[in-house]
Simulated scan of single mutants.
Amino acid sequence: MGDGALGRIAALVRQDGRLLVRDPSPLIVRTVMPLLLMSFMQPLFRAALRADDVRGATGAEQGVPGMAVMFLFFLVNIVGFAMFREHGWHTWDRLRAGPARPFELVAGRLVVPLVVAVVQLAVVFAAGGLLFGLRVTGSYAALVLVGVPLALCVVMVGMALVALCRTIAQLSVFANLLALLFAGLGGALTPRSALPDWARPLAPGVPSYWAMRGFSAVILDGGGVGAVLLPAGVLCAFAAGLTAVTLFFFRAEHRKLSWS
C-alpha cells in the first residue's frame, strides 16, 4: 500500500474522528447502559453462577463480560451509519470521484469504530471492577487477546451489513436482531451451562460464544494467554470471513438510502 493510499485512508479516519468528537453521546450511552443494566441484574447473575457451583460468585463474573459483549454488538449500528450518512449527505459520489479506491473507502471507515469498540470494552471492564467487584483471576493480556479480535468482529459485522443492506432501516433492524441473537446464543445473558437444550449446539456458530468462553476462562478459571488461543483464533476467523463477505458484496456504485 503506497503513501498515497495511506494518506487517503488517514483523511477518512480524521473525518470520522472529528465527527465523533462533535457528538460522542451515542457512544457514551452505549458505554453507560451495560453498567446500568448490570446494577439491576447482578443478583440474577450471582444466583445463576452459584447454582453452577461457582463459589463466592458476586455475579460480576458473568454480568460484566456479558453486558460488555452484548452492548458491544450494538455498535454495529454506528459502523453502518458512518457509511450511510455519506449517502444521506450526498457526499458519497464526491468520494467515489476522488482517487480513493473502494478498498480504501472501506478501510478508512474501520479505524475509528475499532478504537471505540476496544475503548468501550476497556471502560466497561474497568468500571465493572470498581463498581461491581469484578475480580480477574487470570491474565490481563489474555483479556486483551480476546477483546481485540472481538472488537474487530463487531466492526466487520457492521461492514458486512453495509455491503448487503440497501437502506439504513434494513441495517438497523438486522444489527439489533443480531445483537440480541448473539447475546442470547453466546451466553452473554446467562451462563452457557444454563442455555436451553436447543440453543447449545447453535452457540458455537456465533462470535459472542467464543468471546464469553475466552473471558470466562480468564475471569473464572484464572487462565492465561494459552487458555484463550482457541477462542481468539476463532474470533479472528469470524473477522476474516466477514471481511471476505464485505469485499465480495461491497460495490462503491451501489446507491444506499438513509431512509426506507
Rank of each mutant, 00 (worst) to 15 (best):
G2S: 12
G2W: 11
D3H: 08
D3R: 13
G4S: 12
G4E: 13
L6R: 07
L6Y: 03
G7M: 08
R8A: 13
L12A: 08
V13W: 06
R14I: 09
R14D: 12
L19F: 07
L20E: 15
L20G: 07
V29Y: 14
V29N: 14
V29S: 15
T31L: 08
M33L: 14
L35A: 12
L35P: 00
L36H: 11
M38C: 11
S39K: 06
S39R: 08
M41E: 10
Q42C: 04
P43A: 08
F45N: 03
A47S: 15
A47T: 14
L49I: 03
D52R: 12
D52V: 04
D52K: 10
D53V: 06
A57W: 04
T58R: 12
A60G: 06
E61S: 13
E61W: 11
Q62W: 09
F71E: 00
L72D: 02
F74P: 03
F74R: 09
V79F: 00
G80K: 01
F81M: 11
F81N: 08
F84V: 00
E86S: 12
W89E: 15
H90I: 01
W92S: 09
W92D: 00
W92C: 02
D93Q: 11
R94F: 13
R94C: 09
A97I: 02
G98P: 01
P99G: 11
P99F: 01
F103A: 15
E104Q: 10
A107Q: 10
R109D: 05
V112L: 14
V116L: 10
A117W: 00
A117V: 03
V119I: 14
V119Y: 10
Q120G: 00
Q120D: 12
V124I: 15
F125V: 13
A126M: 14
L134E: 05
L134P: 05
V136Y: 12
V136H: 07
T137V: 07
G138N: 03
Y140K: 08
A141F: 06
L145N: 03
G147I: 04
V148R: 05
L150R: 01
L152H: 06
V155D: 01
M159T: 13
V162L: 01
L164K: 09
R166W: 07
S172T: 14
S172C: 06
L177V: 15
L177A: 15
L178D: 06
A183W: 01
G184P: 00
L185F: 11
L185C: 13
G186M: 07
T190S: 05
R192L: 14
R192T: 11
D197M: 11
R200K: 15
P204E: 09
S208D: 08
M212Q: 08
F215E: 03
V218I: 07
I219F: 07
D221Y: 07
G222T: 05
G223F: 01
A227V: 02
L229Y: 03
G233K: 12
L235I: 08
C236Y: 00
A237S: 09
F238K: 09
A239W: 00
A239Q: 02
A244T: 10
V245S: 05
V245I: 10
V245L: 10
L247N: 07
F248C: 06
F249K: 05
R251Q: 15
A252V: 07
A252Q: 09
H254Q: 14
R255L: 12
K256C: 08
S258V: 06
W259V: 13
S260C: 10
